[in-house]
């Protein structure tokens, strides 16, 4: 590898990380790509979980892990947008989409980063119960940290609103966080065999 290759690699690497976690991307298509990258990276974590049993379990976990992100983005975020619009909070669709894509990418990046360590733990821990607890803790950590960009992105928009609307919006965001957490937990429990799902 020549020095120019190394420089090119570093540039691409820096650009990739920065694009995934950037506040906003200029193009709508880039936001969709960022969202899809988040789902793909979450699948990598799913593969790590599937390594405990191997075989078709790899595929089931790889499909099950990003399902919660998909569900929150497709069900919870539109509901939040509608309710925020009802109380006349100054949220816009492009910014909400951007915050959702950023949260997906952030969660995916984090889960993909945790995949090697998780693979070691779930493969080498004998007890199913302990492996399940480790997985739950990892998902809680990633879900909490990954969801922050979505909440902060929407809060950035509603902070311009009058005090009353802003307070209602903050309460709604808190409710949304609880709902998104419960929805993710339900979906992961139902779809991931390591958590006792199908």
């Amino acid at each position: 590898m020549t020095e120019s290759d190394v420089a090119l690699f570093r540039g691409v690497e820096a650009a990739y990380s920065a694009r995934l976690t950037a506040l906003e991307l200029p193009d709508r298509a880039d936001e969709w790509r960022r969202f899809a990258s988040g789902l793909a990276l979450t699948s990598v974590y799913g593969l790590a979980l599937g390594a405990r049993s191997g075989g078709t379990s790899l595929l089931r976990h790889a499909l099950g892990a990003p399902a919660a992100l998909l569900a929150v983005s497709a069900l919870a975020v539109p509901a939040l947008f509608v309710v925020l619009a009802l109380i006349d909070a100054p949220v816009t669709l492009p910014k909400t989409l951007s915050a959702t894509a950023r949260a997906s990418a952030s969660t995916g990046l984090l889960l993909a980063g945790l995949a090697p360590a998780s693979a070691l733990l779930v493969v080498t821990i004998d007890s199913d119960q302990v492996a399940s607890v480790v997985t739950r803790l990892t998902l809680i950590l990633a879900g909490t940290l990954g969801g922050l960009p979505l909440l902060s992105g929407i809060y950035e928009e509603v902070r311009r609103a009058p005090t009353g609307t802003r307070l209602k919006s903050v309460l709604l965001l808190c409710g949304f966080a609880l709902f998104a957490g419960a929805l993710s937990a339900r979906i992961w429990s139902a779809l991931l065999p390591i958590l006792g799902g199908a």
């Binding site: 570093r10 976690t21 984090l110 980063g113």
Partner: peptide
Amino acid sequence: VLVVPALHGLAASLGQPLRLS
């Protein structure tokens, strides 16, 4: 080797992105 990607992911998702290298 196992924890390097985790630190990279954590730093990026918490708004302190660092190059993998």
